[in-house]
Design a protein around this nucleic acid. Structure first.
Length: 423
DNA sequence: TCTGGGGTCCTAGGACCC
DNA sequence: TCTGGGGTCCTAGGACCC
């Protein structure tokens, strides 16, 4: 199934370089060459950095308030995250990549795996051509790594970033060399938990890790670890995911821009989240059978009382309309709320998902069509006039909890009034 | 006193990913 | 004062069934 001429790579990983920053630079060329960071929701943490920002010592996840002096001193350009822009540019990049690779698997907003066609005799030259085409068509630079499986294509990609954008691993000698000084914490499948355990044993490079017996992987890191073992030795254990799978969980959670201490305001905020969750379920044509509602106080404030309540609600009928979901979420939130607590975040997780079509076949769902037609009408209106044009009255009008985005760029590619004007 | 065995489904929690 | 959000997979253990 993975057969290909001996010594040639089978898998490619294409990864956009510093994607969020690159996406901003497409429409803000004055940011080229400047240190740039993109912040998470509420403008709280660094989630993307340009090369210039990395050189200043800014790390992923750094809270903005802790590095404010540094940002100011070096005139770092600070941006709020603009997911409408990133999502749209991601779609464009993926379309170009898909036109060059027959078998193709979108792995995340900025990454895709591909299997190389048998006819490609010069993988490295092919990768150069693909990367150039993506850059020409979208303005986004990509790095491409190739190897005999996904794990090693990931390793190659990491090396490609430091090596002109393309890296191909073809035989075990090259693989050995690549793994010899590859830090285990950068390996796909090694997070902080495994890293700490391995480092305590003196294992710090991917090559050292590979030398451990297969049983160690199996016992310490379960079957995923066992798959990693095979891939490190060049045998493929993860294939491409060629069919889009329907989501198993759909969730929405947000931190508030200020603490919430009143039940009323909290209910208004979760009412807004519940509405958005219902929209997301309808976008994916799914209905949920369960809703998990949770509240969080700030873990970083050990001087304040903590409260992390969770409640799971079973829906009588699988549901994806706001009229079924919002009242449940508000009722549960009222029940979970404890006076005296300063809530920082709330969220809703929809599980037990089934396709909309299966619900409509159910005998006991005669009440649905009315709300289903109402929801479709609301979705059409909001699609035309913008999200939030129609919403639930329970959401209220006090927006003090809403997300802070002080450095947001325009929706250049997805909103008519934000489109760039050429003089 | 001695109390089966094998299967499924569900859930909670822990690991990981970007 | 200020520390993101949305996912996946795996395992162990309990309930339940025949």
């Amino acid at each position: 199934m993975f057969c290909r001429k001996e010594g040639l790579p089978v898998f490619a990983l294409c990864d956009c370089n510093n994607f969020y920053v690159a996406a901003e630079r497409v429409f803000r060329p004055e940011l080229l060459g400047q240190p740039v960071v993109v912040l998470s929701n509420n403008d709280s943490c660094v989630i993307a950095r340009s090369e210039e920002a990395k050189l200043l010592g800014i790390c992923m996840g750094d809270p903005e308030f802790k590095i404010r002096g540094l940002l100011h001193r070096h005139q770092v350009r600070v941006l709020s995250s603009n997911y409408a822009l990133y999502g749209d540019l991601s779609d464009r990049v993926m379309k170009i990549l898909a036109s060059h690779f027959h078998l193709f698997d979108v792995y995340s907003i900025d990454e895709a795996f591909a299997r190389l066609d048998d006819g490609i005799a010069d993988p490295s030259g092919y990768a150069v051509m693909v990367a150039a085409d993506v850059l020409k068509c979208t303005g986004i630079p990509v790095s491409i790594g190739m190897g005999p499986n996904k794990t090693l294509a990931k390793v190659a990609n990491r090396l490609a970033k430091k090596n002109g954008g393309i890296k191909v691993l073809t035989n075990d000698q090259q693989i050995r060399m690549a793994l010899a000084d590859f830090p285990i914490e950068d390996l796909w499948g090694i997070g902080t938990g495994y890293y700490n355990r391995l480092a305590a044993m003196g294992i710090t490079t991917a090559l050292q890790l590979r030398e451990l017996p297969e049983l160690f992987f199996k016992q310490q890191m379960s079957v995923q670890g066992q798959r990693m073992y095979h891939e490190l030795w060049g045998r493929p254990a993860f294939d491409l995911q060629l069919r889009a799978m329907s989501a198993k969980v759909v969730s929405i959670s947000r931190s508030f821009s200020a603490y919430i201490t009143e039940a009323e305001l909290l209910c208004q905020a979760v009412s807004n989240y519940a509405w958005r969750l219902a929209e997301k379920l309808r976008e994916q044509r799914l209905c949920c059978r369960k809703l998990e509602i949770f509240l969080l106080t700030s873990r970083h404030r050990s001087d304040q009382p903590q409260h992390f309540p969770v409640h799971t609600h079973q829906m009588a009928i699988p549901c994806n309309d706001a009229h079924g979901i919002v009242p449940v979420v508000v009722r549960v939130t009222r029940m979970l709320f404890q006076p005296g607590m300063r809530y920082r975040k709330a969220g809703i997780v929809a599980t037990g998902l089934i396709p909309e079509s299966e619900v409509q076949l159910n005998l006991f769902t005669q009440v649905r069509p009315k709300y289903s037609r109402l929801s479709s009408a609301v979705d059409r209106i909001n699609a035309s006039f913008g999200r939030g044009t129609l919403r639930m009255a329970s959401e209220g009008s006090d927006t003090s909890w809403k997300m802070k985005q002080n450095f947001l760029t325009r929706h250049y590619t997805t909103r008519w009034e934000d489109i760039v004007t050429v003089k």
